[in-house]
Structures are given as structure tokens and as C-alpha cells.
């Protein structure tokens, strides 16, 4: 069970308080009707699914209820950093990249 730092509550809580919400920074287009089928499918279904640092969303569903973002290493499952929704993806120190 992971231990996740909620950036809104500013505390680390066990994974079962949270709900995973998929890849982060997959923004919905302001006007989807302008998109062709391929681009829309890309938004709906296609994901980066990296082996390594993954930007993902969590919701503190059994806490403050807020959605936030996290960078997690999908090889070790280690959570590297969490940040609030709307914030840009933080740069990691170089050693985190090389992991």
C-alpha cells in the first residue's frame, strides 16, 4: 500500500484514502467538435504509460476530496512528488531522472 502526500491536506496518508485517476496533463480540448476523429481518440484512449517517471492524478476521495497530480516511478512505485491540480509538472533533480 502506497503512502501518498496530499498537497492540499499537507499530509501523508495511506493509499486506500485515495482514488487513482489516470494520467495527468491530458487536457480536454476547449471545443472538442473542432478535433478530427484521430485527435479525439488520442485524448480518449491513448496514454504514455511510461516505464519510469509517470505524471498521474489522484483524488483524496476519503479526505479533502481534491484531485491532485503526482510524479511516481512506475518501476519502484516510489512517489517522487505530488502537486496541486493546475500546477505545472515539476522538474525533478537529475538523479530522479536517471533512475
Amino acid at each position: 500500500m502506497l503512502l501518498i502526500h496530499c498537497p492540499y491536506c499537507a499530509m501523508e496518508r495511506p493509499e486506500i484514502e485515495f482514488r487513482h485517476a489516470g494520467e495527468a496533463h491530458v487536457a480536454r480540448a476547449p471545443d472538442p467538435s473542432q478535433l478530427d476523429d484521430e485527435t479525439w481518440a488520442e485524448f480518449l484512449y491513448f496514454r504514455s504509460n511510461p516505464k519510469g517517471v509517470h505524471a498521474e492524478r489522484w483524488r483524496h476521495v476519503h479526505g479533502c476530496g481534491r484531485f491532485f497530480n503526482a510524479l511516481r516511478d512506475t518501476v519502484s512505485d516510489r512517489l517522487l512528488v505530488t502537486y496541486k491540480a493546475g500546477e505545472v509538472r515539476p522538474e525533478l533533480p537529475p538523479q530522479e531522472h536517471s533512475r
Binding site: 494520467e23 481518440a41 491513448f46 496514454r47 504509460n49 516505464k51
Partner: peptide
């Protein structure tokens, strides 16, 4: 996903 990325393809897949 890791392999297809080597051909610059994204996949509708999560592991």
C-alpha cells in the same frame, strides 16, 4: 507501450 514508443507510437494501453 515501452516498445512501441521506440517507433514513436503511443498506444491505448496502461500497464
Amino acid at each position: 507501450s515501452v516498445l512501441m514508443a521506440m517507433a514513436s507510437l503511443r498506444m491505448p494501453i496502461e500497464s
